[in-house]
Design a protein around this nucleic acid. Structure first.
Lengths: 334, 334
DNA sequence: TTGTAGGCGTTATCAG
DNA sequence: CTGATAACGCCTACAA
């Protein structure tokens, strides 16, 4: 593998000149530039970005830490950050935590050792030690799908409380009084927790008694949604509607309800959260809270790069989410 | 940011010793090891993996190039490679080509400049210049979702021809004679092309005349599937069944058919390809050709690392795919 | 406009 | 078991 030294020799110039034609061609005379370019071709020169990063102290690489790429929302935001990064000639190293805190911690460490210029994190615990350390050490990062509205960490997210409230409100307005919630475990997702808060407050605001049996916490999966809803439906006083804290759970719930012989949406109204692409392609189409995942990713990347390049002050961006009413919700039976 | 030199000074040893306690602690006496560890703590030493890579000439990073992370199959295989890589302490840089050849080319270049140790590629064109260059320059890589069965490129894939054949055969056996195919554009996916070959051969083998109007090529998306099927269904002699070259297309087709007032599966049988998780959660559940995406990713990563570490000879692995019969296919009406 | 030379943080080779 | 020191490939003052 040839280096700029080889090229330099071949072209009869110094390595500095070669470096210049690579990084600021305009500062070198046309003639020499040609000589160098030709020499590069001849020895099939390949630029070593790693060596560059080593001296400039920036790798032009960022780390993206998410719970799992298998949830389409995260895939969506991931392509948002990728697209923005690509456009800025930045590479992104992807890591899944699978909602495990230790995994998040080890990822952060590894990525920092790899000298990433910054981190975009969908954290399991935005108020935990990992994030605190990052802040203390002044390492550039931004939180994605964040629930934090202030503080010294940059973040972009939506108002999950509001989302939960709206979803529930929609159900209440439809006449439902026994409204269940199938939530991702609070211990691994404070987003889910915030959504539940919205749900609970809404219920309270409408004078509906809170029934803790109507809350299921599970892992964020299709099967989790299915099983939780089946259990809930087996109670003496089953819910007539459920709010699921993401679309996967909701899709799973649909299946669970059907396996119990229910007709949707007549026998059970279901609201999801995220609005993943498939949500509008199932029958009945899923009513859900849409969050702008792609934009969030893009914005997160933008924020991070700003933070890296201009050491901007931390900002928290809250994007708009909205209730998308489709066919999976309807009035209470009878 | 402190370096091993700082640590060395503080501990009163040489940098070599510090390096040793990091990389081969067993070769340094307990006492000195302790001194060093303590010193590292004190100056909050952070290892610089990039500097290491610079001298060892390996970055412990691989590149993963896929069409788009938004298709759940690719998300699945991506987590397969990630999991294996993680387990081997390797990081993965992810890049989307969006089925564009130039994007693939530029990704390969950038990643090589970043000194990735190898590449896993789901190529738009496995027989094109990009792959050829890689082979010629003896750069470690493996093809994923590959259609190639021999040659000097390592690859793992399934038999797409067979998959297409089986899907079609299932439909024929059900009594269908007008069987359409909604395919991803052949120009961006040779997988789709192979599947079509299987489809066509099967039709021929059963003495059914091939009707080119019954082939639609579109982009791999929900809307692509929906629109293609609607168009096909508008013909004078519409198909009674369609084989879609992936599940997204099939899910889209379901919606398209319904928008035209058809009942599924009575009025139209649909077969997909991939068996993405959601496929068994829609109504009717989708009959599809399952391919082991996660395993494929894992295997691809394993192969690549072998190739990197032991310069093994190229191998082509063909995994088993299988027809999963569910509710979206049924006998021909009447 | 071009060249010289020092340095980035770590590993590896030799001695000791 | 430990230390000294030369790489590694590139960038960047500074000098010419």
């Amino acid at each position: 593998m040839s280096t700029i030294l080889d090229v330099a020799k071949l072209a009869g110039v110094s390595t500095a000149t070669v470096s210049r034609v690579i990084n600021s061609p305009e500062t070198v005379r046309g003639g020499t530039r040609k000589k160098v370019t030709r020499a590069m071709k001849i020895c099939n020169y390949k630029y070593n970005a790693l060596a560059r990063g080593f001296v400039t102290k920036q790798s032009d690489t960022i780390g993206l830490i998410i719970p799992t790429i298998n949830n389409p929302v995260f895939a969506e935001s991931t392509s948002g950050v990728q697209d923005y990064a690509d456009q800025q000639k930045i590479q992104v190293i992807l890591g899944n935590t699978y909602y495990r805190n230790e995994q998040e911690e080890s990822l952060v460490q590894t990525l920092r050792e790899k000298q990433v210029d910054g981190l975009i994190i969908t954290s399991t615990n935005p108020k935990g030690a990992i994030i605190k350390t990052l802040t203390d050490e002044n390492f550039p990062f931004v939180l994605l799908y964040s629930t934090v509205k202030k503080g010294d960490a940059s973040a972009v997210g939506i108002d999950n409380y509001q989302g939960g409230y709206r979803a529930t409100d929609h159900l209440v307005k439809l006449g439902h009084e026994r409204i269940g919630m199938v939530a991702g475990s609070f211990s691994i997702s404070d987003r889910s927790f915030h959504r539940w808060h919205g749900y609970r407050q809404c219920i309270k605001d409408h004078g509906i008694a809170y029934d803790k049996d109507l809350l299921a916490q599970t892992d964020y999966s299709l099967t989790g949604g299915r099983d939780s809803v089946k259990k809930m439906l087996s109670y003496k006083k089953p819910p007539t509607a459920v709010f699921c804290s993401n679309d996967f759970l909701a899709l799973g719930a649909m299946k669970g309800a059907r396996e119990l012989g229910l007709n949707l949406p007549q026998d059970l109204s279901i609201v999801g959260f995220d609005d993943i692409p498939i949500a509008s392609y199932v029958i009945p189409e899923l009513t859900t809270i849409r969050q702008p995942a792609y934009e969030m990713g893009k914005l997160g990347a933008k924020l991070l790069l700003q933070c890296i390049r201009e050491q901007t002050k931390p900002v928290q961006l809250m994007l708009e989410s909205s209730l998308i009413i489709r066919g999976s919700t309807t009035g209470v039976p009878g």
